[in-house]
Amino acid sequence: MRHEFRLTVGPVGFRIGSDWREPLDRLAALYDGYPETALPDFTVRLFAQRPWRRFIRPSVMIGGDYMLPDAAPMALAHGLLAAEMGMNLQMALGQRRYLLLHASAAEKGGKAVLMTGASGAGKSTLSALLGERGWRLMGDEFALVDCETGLLHAFPRLVSLKNEAIALFEGQVDARRFGPKLSDTPKGTIRHMRPNDEAVAHMAEPVKPALLLFPRFGHEAAVRPMGAGEVFVRLTQASTNYVALGEAGFDALSSLVKTVPTRAIDYPDTETALRLVEQLWTESSL
């Protein structure tokens, strides 16, 4: 590979190689201050489909230690997104040390709230907003559960803001934290945002999960209890490696479900959601 960039996100080290310089320059700027890694856990490769495609209508193929056989190439202008997807792919296919939950997380007072649910539920946006309002953002996409200790490890990659969510942050946070606005991606318009300094400085500190929420956007405000069986099933569905971790994964997940209070919350707008989260957080710490 012609160009290389290395970084550590939470407890996971990455090496990213690229046929082009540009996507890695963008990564380096946004991930400035994240630790280096000498022996990365995963390698990501961004490469041209054919040698001449480096220059002519350049399109980026996403590869690495773990690959999907028919991943479609992306425009070079979306190279930053390709790099982020490449890292996600390694985690989704290759992570075997931590139970990986497709969930966002934020910390306050040494304990964490976990938010999961179908895509479009708003878990990413909510965690990012919490991260700007006195909480420490632990991650907007993946949460890592240590199977031995039950503690939650942060994985604060760039926040991937989509469509309407972008406007919630533009003008509110330091402009230097934003990546370029990427239009017409497969997911619409995307803009990456660097987590704040607090999130980066403390990313190596795991904490106890204290509240688990299943948010749902587009409904009247409501809080509902959930049966433990349903919670367990939905978390297995939200995990990419639950089955692969075997009994250790079973123990970690079942004890998470047994010990962490869980609620489903419906919300019509983000301000209401944040209020509900704070309210449930206060109640759960009583």
Binding site: A228, G229, F232, F250
Partner: peptide, 22 residues
């Protein structure tokens, strides 16, 4: 088997298959 009771259901982790049954 490893069995965990959760309110109304029982989780069974079946060691031979690595499958979880609810």
């Amino acid at each position: 088997r490893r069995i965990v009771q959760l309110d109304s259901v029982t989780l069974i982790f079946h060691r031979a298959s690595g499958l979880t049954h609810i």
